[in-house]
Write a protein that binds this DNA or RNA. Sequence first.
RNA 1: GGCGGUAUCGUCUAGGGGACUAGGACGGAGCCCUCUCAAGGCUCAAACACGGGUUCGAAUCCCGUUACCGCUACCA
Length: 507
Amino acid sequence: MTEMSVAAAAAPSAAPRTAPSPAPDRYAPAGRPRLRFAPSPTGYLHVGGARTALFNWLYARHFGGDFLLRVEDTDKARSNEASTRAIFEGLEWLGLTWDEPVVYQGANVARHADDGARMLAAGAVYRCFCTAEELDERRAAAHARHETFTYDRRCDRLAPAEIARLVAAGTPYALRFRVPEGTTGWNDLVHGEIAFPNKDIDDFVVLRSDGTPVYNMAVVSDDIAMRITLVMRGDDHISNTPKQILLYHALGAPLPEFAHLPMIHGTDGKKLSKRHGATAVADYQNQGILPTAMLNFLALLGWSPGGDREIMTVPEMVKLFSPDGLLRKAAIFDLQKLEWMNGQHLSLIALDDLLPRVVPALVAAGLATTESLAARPDWFRALIDLLRVRARTVLDIVRQAEPYLRDVIGYDPEAVAKQWKDREGAASLLALTRTKLAGVTEWTTAALEPALRELAESRGLTAGKIFQPLRVALTGLTVSPGIFDVLVMLGRDRSLARIDAALAYLR
RNA sequence: GGCGGUAUCGUCUAGGGGACUAGGACGGAGCCCUCUCAAGGCUCAAACACGGGUUCGAAUCCCGUUACCGCUACCA
């Protein structure tokens, strides 16, 4: 299987495990919890999937358990290696590390079939000789009569001799679960008691006639094998849960706990999809969102630590996490809030952690090379520290960094129109400024500021009248960090040269 | 259609019978700070889906209605 090669390549380094919280948590699990994130590799890591992974991870880290990853690749038509890789990369970017080698569901088909056989022997399932085509016809017929289709168990009523004959003749058959009478329910960690009358659960197929497992079968068989203690997933799986519980019973396995997380919706209240814009985690990575901000934002979409707490670091989330803060209502993905939150994290993050995110973006934008930035680390650190305050994404920083990294700048038409409206006036002011600046012996904000303010005062001007035209000359823009910081970042020679260039442009 | 789930400002949410004139945050409006832009501070507008109960008292508990979402495959 091609997927196996990916496994070896992507084995993550084991993350240091958080010690079990000493807090008296009334939701604390009895033993060491084991959770898993089980995506299908049919696309990219979706933000909804990322959030499911996050909550599983948070639970495992908070309670000192294991977080496992299982790739559900049994649907060969839709699964592919690129998707598997994308999921790994998304998870790794977010820092959601898993504790054991990745499990590939496709590698377990033998066990799935064996579990089916065990249930056949135990009498929990029966052979169904109906073909998919027949079933489709009957379903369509029922639909035409406005009736709800349920399997009529005709194959369960076959005489033993008939079954033996069919089997001997090599007639293909699927294995169907014989749903017993009664009610199947569980105490969901987020919803509380949920119960389904068994009469509403159709006798579902467990093993197809080609011997491959159907979703619910594969999931239960694998979760048992992986000794999963808490199944935490999207609430679109609520109606699968009674079937799975029935399977656990039939297989004689202890039941895990279940937690069903709400969905994430787009701005129109519908399930988040491509129509709503970016849905892949990688899209946000490319847009300059920090993983910590993404995690923080996702965590708050479906969970609340209580009170007014909003901005949290990852360790804080781990510490604060509790299943009783899990929400039941679907949340709408609000990009603006994500960006605001990213701005907060941009200011919060250690500069040393931010730099590695900015450098590649700068290089990709063609504004610098790794070497050129490494050549003057202190200058670069100061620059980024100056820019990050007014940026919401890494891409904002890149945009703002341009005047400090390029040799030649262009002038924003609007800036020219607004600040250099009177070309002559602007030029003479700039000339004056240049002279003043050239006379400043120490190129520091402390020395530059009094010099320019003095110039303004001597001319009877407000400081802004000097600063704004200067800003355009220096950056080509109307917005920038404080003018003295800009002068210092640019340095004496380049600042003076920029003013000269502006003078040439104006005259 | 059947079954299940959900329901507090536009959005994310606090709230778990009296502390609610319903709090915070994003976004919006405005003010302050200020060399611009951010950041920050302050102010304003903005919500308990509806109807019945239970209770001295309900956003909080129960029932119903409505709306929305999900499932309803030999898909996952």
